[in-house]
């Protein structure tokens, strides 16, 4: 029969058992010693090891490391010449580094070497340099793909809108370095695709809007030697022609 005394006794026994039980666990925790580590420490170490392994697996699957040289090589093999040239064309027009043609020619006439050097861009040690020039001119005659124009100072210019080849425009821009490319072939490919954009897209579109008698703005490239004597018969490779 359960009396008040019995209940109290049972409770006391239960309490004693619980205390003893928890003491036992604590003692076990202290008894189980492996290499000087308690059970608690072992569990913590296990957690740290599992977390570290997971972190290493996550990082290994998250990133890959390659050298910048390899990356450059990879990029070069996928190099988009057309896009590069299109951007270059826009840069040439946007930067507007072109010198007034009359200003350049007077520097030549006066043998102003400082200015001649300032305006020009040259590749290597050749005696000729390339100049980005601009001028305003009046169209005198449209002869098929050629324009005869009269620029400031009554200077007659011959502009061939079809025969746009070579490296004059690329080099006159001063924006492309040989060292940016692995091979000369790649460097020259920039000229090829830049010339194509100007010859087949930019200039034909502009030519549709002009006729003899119109006044136009010209941005172009010219090649001049260090001691250029013939300043009268200049041939300008057009980069942009726009009707005023």
């Amino acid at each position: 029969m359960l009396t008040a005394y019995n209940l109290k006794h049972i409770n006391y026994q239960y309490f004693t058992f619980t205390v003893q039980h928890s003491t036992l666990i604590k003692s076990l925790n202290h008894i189980i010693v492996l290499g000087g580590c308690s059970l608690k420490k072992l569990i913590t170490m296990k957690k740290i090891i599992i977390s570290s392994v997971l972190a290493v697996v996550a990082i290994y699957n998250s990133i890959y490391i390659e050298s910048l040289d390899d990356l450059k090589q990879k990029k070069d093999s996928n190099f988009d010449f057309a896009k590069y040239s299109q951007d270059l064309y826009q840069q040439i027009l946007a930067k507007s580094q072109a010198v007034e043609l009359s200003q350049l020619l007077s520097s030549f006439a006066e043998n102003d070497h400082a200015n001649i050097a300032k305006y020009g861009n040259r590749l290597g040690i050749g005696s000729s340099a390339y100049y980005l020039v601009k001028c305003q001119a009046k169209i005198l005659e449209v002869q098929g793909d050629r324009l005869k124009v009269l620029a400031a100072g009554n200077r007659l210019l011959d502009i061939d809108t079809k025969f746009i080849f070579g490296n004059a425009i690329r080099d006159a821009s001063g924006l492309v370095k040989l060292t940016d490319f692995k091979t000369t072939a790649e460097f020259n490919k920039i000229s090829e695709s830049l010339n194509t954009i100007i010859r087949e897209k930019a200039i034909p579109e502009e030519l549709k809007t002009v006729k003899a008698g119109d006044t136009i703005d010209i941005v172009g490239a010219v090649k001049l030697g260090e001691k250029q004597h013939d300043l009268l018969n200049l041939s300008v490779l057009p980069i942009k022609i726009s009707k005023i």
């Binding site: 996550a58 890959y64 050298s67």
Partner: peptide, 9 residues
């Protein structure tokens, strides 16, 4: 002189 690329993960 390195480039760290990232996978989708």
């Amino acid at each position: 002189n390195i480039h760290v690329g990232f996978t989708i993960f």
